[in-house]
Nucleic acid binder design. Structure first.
Length: 501
DNA sequence: TAACCTTTGAAGGCG
DNA sequence: CGCCTTCAAAGGTTA
């Protein structure tokens, strides 16, 4: 993968990720052949999808204003035209199409963000600023790096706010474009419009809904100090992580990644404000202290996973937070007994559910879902995901590589944040255990059902080939439940291990 | 109201 | 080591 290694400076190595491109060949086939497989489901939908892809560059403010878009050729043309016009308005050269055709990122998420009422610097712009700070990298010793980041972010906004036409080495046109547009933030605001660039990295979506800034944020009081803050401080550095409008401006720690490669940034968009580690990932000013004091080795942030910003960590889900938070808050206020607090913390610790880091496809989905929904007028996630899956395969290597890289960073950061966490921890999270059990039961029943009608239930499942079927029975039911195996599998088992290892 | 559906990828377990 | 299962997001649908 050219991009990953070519980017240099990434000591993380991307080889493992490259392995993930198992379907590259398939992908290329699909693309080159325009194969029938590419059309089946999509014949109905893909027309919309394809069309949408042509419009992927249309996430400009002007387009946002035109939503909901009539799906017609004329609209497309108009969109294109207006885009061109917009391009001219946006200082011409700066408004160029992304380096990757069809690449969905248009880095002007802030344009539609309800959280950017003023003209303060957009998150993306800050991302660009920040990415220039090498310490941003999430590396071992991340805490120091984050602290350094905090310091690095300090430069007064005066440096930041202004016409941004800085040219960073290796910066893409798009980056500049984004940078530039970011200063025109308040142009259009559609509270109801979900920007296509819904935050990539999000572990929890509950806290930053575009149209509904969390109450605790709206109060705009520094949770740490209790000092009220101006809603939109012109001065970002001390406060930006705290106000709704500025939370989204926190640069994604991974933001340095892409831009340095001359590729679009994974936006920490405002739109939904659902950042993967929205706040946690956004290792910024508040992060350093947050990590050091609130995310001790054992990953559990005290006080119902709230950051100093008052924003719960996205990767942490505490179902009982609501009930307990009020109680604990009051109690903590009334009683100065730290021991009690500790006990509660430990209690919550056990209830904390740390979500898995998002993989590349999930990141991609998160970003593109809103777009697909808007373009295809589909709401059912299952259908949308099918489309997204196809789109994913249609992505070029470079495009996918970016997501793989991002996902890798995500995992790394996740590891740093929750050193002791294991994916296994989420396996039998009681409720989920039930679900899986039920699922398994269903599969089992299905298997039995098939047995009634088909000699080989495995063969009744279209995608499963004869050869792969036997493996499934053993793997699925295990040796101790051979009674659930299909006939052929049992016979083969007896004869000899036709279940190749 | 919980589970399902649907996608891909990562991680863990099992044989 | 290879295969399978589970989970991650998401939101309409289903039981």
């Amino acid at each position: 993968m050219p991009q990953l290694n070519g980017g240099g400076g990434d000591d993380l190595g991307a080889n493992d990720e490259m392995i993930s491109f198992k379907d590259e060949g398939e992908q290329e086939e699909k693309i080159s052949e325009n194969s029938s497989a590419e059309r089946d489901l999509a014949d109905v939908k893909s027309s919309l999808v394809n069309e949408s892809e042509t419009n992927q560059n249309s996430s400009s403010d002007s387009e946002a204003e035109r939503r909901p878009p009539p799906r017609s050729e004329t609209f497309r043309d108009k969109t294109r035209e207006s885009l061109e016009e917009a391009a001219k308005r946006q200082d011409g050269g700066l408004f160029k199409s992304p380096p990757y055709p069809g690449y969905p990122f248009i880095m002007i998420p802030d344009l539609t963000s309800p959280y950017l009422p003023n003209g303060s610097l957009s998150p993306t712009a800050r991302t660009y600023l920040q990415m220039k700070w090498p310490l941003l990298d999430v590396q071992p010793g991340g805490l120091q790096s984050r602290q350094a980041l905090k310091d690095a972010r300090s430069p007064s906004p005066a440096h930041i706010v202004g016409p941004f036409c800085w040219e960073f080495p290796g910066q893409s046109d798009l980056s500049l474009h984004q940078f530039h547009l970011s200063n025109k933030v308040p142009v259009v605001q559609h509270p109801h419009h979900v920007h296509p660039l819904t935050p990539l990295i999000t572990y929890s979506n509950e806290h930053f809904t575009p149209g509904n800034p969390p109450p605790h944020l709206q109060t705009d009081v520094d949770p740490k100090t209790g000092i009220p803050r101006p809603p939109h401080p012109p001065d970002i550095s001390p406060y930006y992580p705290l106000s709704p409008g500025t939370v989204g401006q926190i640069p994604h720690p991974l933001g340095w990644l892409v831009p340095q490669q001359g590729q679009p940034v994974y936006p920490i968009t405002t739109g939904g404000f659902r950042h993967p580690y929205p706040t946690a990932l956004t290792v910024n000013a508040s992060m350093s202290s947050l990590l050091s004091s609130r995310f001790p080795p054992h990953m559990v942030p005290p006080h119902h996973s709230l950051h100093t910003t008052g924003i719960p960590h996205p990767a942490i889900v505490t179902p009982n937070v609501k009930q307990e938070s009020t109680h604990s808050d009051i109690s903590s206020l009334n009683s100065s007994k730290q021991t009690d607090a500790k006990k509660e913390e430990e209690k919550k610790k056990q209830q904390v559910h740390i979500k898995k880091p998002l993989n590349a496809f999930m990141l991609y989905m998160k970003e593109m879902r809103a777009k697909v929904v808007a373009e295809c007028t589909l709401k059912e996630s299952a259908a949308i995901n099918q489309i997204l899956g196809r789109r994913w395969h249609a992505l070029s290597r470079e495009e996918q590589a970016k997501y793989y890289e991002l996902a890798r960073k995500e995992r790394q950061l996740h590891m740093q944040l929750y050193p002791g966490w294991s994916a296994r921890d989420n396996y039998a999270a009681n409720q989920q255990g039930k679900r899986k059990k039920r699922k398994r039961e269903k599969q089992q029943a299905e298997s039995n059902e098939h047995r009634e009608y088909f000699p080989n239930p495995c063969l009744s499942l279209p995608p499963i080939t004869d050869l792969s079927a036997p493996k499934k029975c053993r793997a699925r039911f295990g040796l101790d439940q051979q009674n659930n195996w299909c006939g052929p599998c049992r016979c083969k088992k007896k004869v000899h291990s036709l279940h190749p290892r």
